[in-house]
Nucleic acid binder design. Structure first.
Lengths: 339, 339
DNA sequence: AACTGGCACTCAATACCCGAGAGTGCCAGA
DNA sequence: TCTGGCACTCTCGGGTATTGAGTGCCAGTT
C-alpha cells in the first residue's frame, strides 16, 4: 500500500475523530502539511474508498472512515500517545487508602472512566486456581445457619440455610468436619471430598450434614469472576447526537452482565498482555455494531486475573484510549500482586 | 375549589402524561365527556393557571401541568390504578430460587424497573439495631490476615491487614479475644469494649492487637445500608426527547450513591408505610429539578428496613407507578420477614 | 351568575425556495 | 504521476409564506 495513502487515512481518522465531521480533501491538505495538491488527495481518497477504508455519507460530502479504515489505523497507523502528567498522577494515586476487593474494583472503574472519558467496565478479579480457604458457620437463630465461604483469593461468599434446633457444639463439629474436607482444595475437589465423606457418616448425622453440603455446592459452583462493575455512564451524554446508535444500545448492554462479559471475553484472550480493540461490526453483539470495545486483561496468571475495558462510539480516540487502558491495567495488576 | 376545575386538572394531567403534548380545550372536551363547551373549559384553565397549577409553553399552545399541578393531582385526584394480572404474577413469582442478599436486591431492582418502566433504585436492607455476630480471622499468608465481620443481619464485611509472622495459635487467640468483646454488641459498644480491653493488654501484645482493632473500627464504621443498587437504566431511552432535562441528569445522579441515598432519604421517613412522591423542584438535588421520585420504605422496623423507589420525568404515570412501588415494597418486605 | 358561540389574534411548526459553500469526479496538460 | 481547472451535486442556513391549534375576550343566552 502506498505510503501517502496511509498518511491520508491516518489524517482522515484523526481529523474525523476530533471534529465528528466528514473531512474533505482541501481542509486535509491545509491542516496536515501534505505537500501535494487537493486533487491528488482526492484520487487517493477515491482509491481508499474503493478498497473499503472510507465512505462518504452522500456525494459531495467529505470522507469518513469505515470499520475497516479504523482497523487499519489501529493496527498500523496509530502512534502511541503518551498520557499526560495529570493522568499519570491520577492513576498512580488512585489506590491510596483502598480497603477491600470491592473498593479496588470500584476505584478502578472510576479511574478508567475518568481518564478515557468513556463507559468503563471492570471484571472482578478471578483466581487462576482458586481454592477454598475456610468455611465458617454462624448461627442466625435456633433454626437458621449462615455459611460463609472464604476463598484463597480473598473473595467471600455467603448463604444461609435452615437447620432446625441446632446447638453450638453441633455447629462447631460441622464446621471442623467441612473444613477438614474442603480447606485448601479446589472447589471441585472440595465438593468431591465432601460427597464421599457424606457417605461414610452415620445416617443420623448424614441428613443434617447434607444440607450443608448442598449449600456448599451451590456457593462453589458460581464463578466469582462472572461479575463486572460499570462506571462512567454519564460519559455517554457526550454522544447525545448519536442517540440511537450509541447511547441506547450501550445502556441496554450495560444492564446485562453476561453481554458485557462476552463482549470483553471475545476481545481479550487469557494470558495475552496486549490491548485488544474490537471495532464496530467486529463485535458479535448485534446492537453494538457501531461502537468499539477497547479491553485488556489485568493481574497475573499466578494470582488473580480478569478483564477491563471501555466501550464507546467507533469514532473514538484510539491512541489515547488504548494508552489509558494499558496504563490502568498495568497499574491495577501491579497493585493486586503487591497485595 | 370548584369540582369541575379539579376534573379539568385531572383530565389535563392524564392526557399530558399519555401524549407528552400540551393539551388544549377542544381536544379535552372531546376526549373526556365533560358536558360543557370548550370556552367554559378555557375559563377554568385560565383560572387554574392563575392559581399556579398549569402553564403553557407559549401563547396559543395547550396547557401543561406545573409541579404544583402534579402535586395536587397526586394528593387529591389520583385514583388508584390496580395492577394488571401479569404484573401481580411477575411480582409474586420473582423471588423463586433466590439465594443471598445480593440476589434479593438484584431481583427487586429488576422487578421494580420492569413494572414501572422507569429507573429503579433499591437500598440494601439495613438492620434496625445491627449487632456484631462474629469476627473471623483467616491467614492469607505469613504476613497477611483477612478479617471477616459478620453482622446479625447476615451482611458480611471483609478487609485484610498486615500482621508480620503470625502463627495459627496467635490468630486463634486474637479471634477468641475479639469475639468475646464484640460478639452480640452493637458496633459502637463493640468498638468501645475493644478499645478498653486494648489498654489492659500486655504491651507486647497490644501493638499487634491494635492493628486488628483499627481494622475493626474501619469496617464497623461504614454503614452497610449506605449502598444502593440501580436498574432499568435503559428505560431512560424512552425519554430521548428530554435529553438535557431527564436522561443526562439522571445518569449523573445514578453514578453517585450518596446522591441517590439522600434523594430517597428525604422523601421517605423511617417507619412511614406510605408511598412518598417528590415532584420536580421538591427534590433538593439541583439537576433533578424536572424529575420525580416515587419511593417507599420496605421491610419492618424489628428486622431490616430500607428504601426503594424509582426516578423518572415529572410527567410520569403517578397512579401506576405509585401502585407498583407499593406492591413491590410490600412483597419484598414480606419476603424478608419470612426469611 | 354561569355558560356559550363567535371572532380576532398569536405563535410554533411546516413547507418551500434560493443561494452559498464545500466537496467531488473527471480530464487535459505539465 | 501529479496538478489546475471545471462542471456538477448535494447539504445547510436563512428567509418567507402558510397552516392550524389554541388562546382571550366579549356580547349574548339561559
Amino acid at each position: 500500500m502506498d505510503e501517502r495513502k496511509l498518511a491520508v487515512l491516518r489524517a482522515i481518522v484523526t481529523d474525523y475523530v476530533a471534529s465528528h465531521e466528514p473531512v474533505g480533501s482541501k481542509t486535509l491538505v491545509e491542516r496536515h502539511h501534505l505537500d501535494v495538491s487537493a486533487a491528488t488527495i482526492r484520487n487517493d481518497m477515491a482509491s481508499l474508498e474503493d478498497e473499503g477504508y472510507l465512505t462518504h455519507p452522500h456525494t459531495s460530502a467529505g470522507r469518513i472512515p469505515t470499520d475497516k479504515g479504523y482497523r487499519l489505523f489501529v493496527d498500523r497507523l496509530a502512534t502511541v500517545k503518551p498520557l499526560s502528567l495529570a493522568e499519570r498522577r491520577a492513576i498512580s494515586s488512585f489506590m491510596e487508602g483502598v480497603c477491600d476487593l470491592d473498593d479496588i474494583v470500584r476505584r478502578t472503574v472510576r479511574l478508567l472512566a475518568q481518564v478515557t472519558r468513556q463507559v468503563a467496565i471492570v471484571q472482578y478479579p478471578v483466581a487462576a486456581s482458586p481454592r477454598v480457604r475456610h468455611v465458617e458457620l454462624v448461627s442466625l437463630g435456633p433454626d437458621r445457619v449462615l455459611t460463609v465461604v472464604i476463598r484463597s483469593t480473598g473473595t467471600v461468599e455467603q448463604r444461609s440455610f435452615e437447620l432446625t434446633d441446632h446447638t453450638d457444639t453441633e455447629l462447631a463439629g460441622l464446621r471442623d468436619w467441612v473444613n477438614s474436607l474442603a480447606a485448601g482444595r479446589t472447589p471441585a475437589d472440595a465438593l468431591e471430598a465432601v460427597s464421599v465423606a457424606l457417605g461414610e457418616l452415620h445416617p443420623a448425622e448424614r441428613l443434617r450434614a447434607s444440607r450443608l453440603a448442598a449449600v456448599l455446592s451451590d456457593v462453589l459452583s458460581v464463578d466469582p469472576g462472572a461479575r463486572v462493575m460499570v462506571g462512567g455512564v454519564p460519559n455517554l451524554t457526550r454522544f447525545g447526537t448519536e442517540y440511537e446508535t450509541t447511547v441506547k444500545p450501550v445502556l441496554e448492554a450495560l444492564e446485562e452482565q453476561m453481554v458485557l462479559l462476552r463482549l470483553l471475553g471475545e476481545a481479550v484472550k487469557p494470558g495475552d498482555d496486549e490491548v485488544a480493540v474490537r471495532i464496530g461490526g467486529e463485535n458479535s453483539y448485534e446492537p453494538l455494531q457501531s461502537t468499539s470495545v477497547v479491553a485488556r486483561g489485568y493481574g497475573s496468571a499466578d494470582s488473580a486475573w480478569a478483564m477491563l475495558g471501555v466501550v464507546g462510539p467507533t469514532r473514538m480516540d484510539y491512541p489515547s484510549t488504548i494508552a489509558a487502558v494499558r496504563a490502568v491495567a498495568n497499574y491495577v495488576g501491579r497493585f493486586l500482586q503487591e497485595g
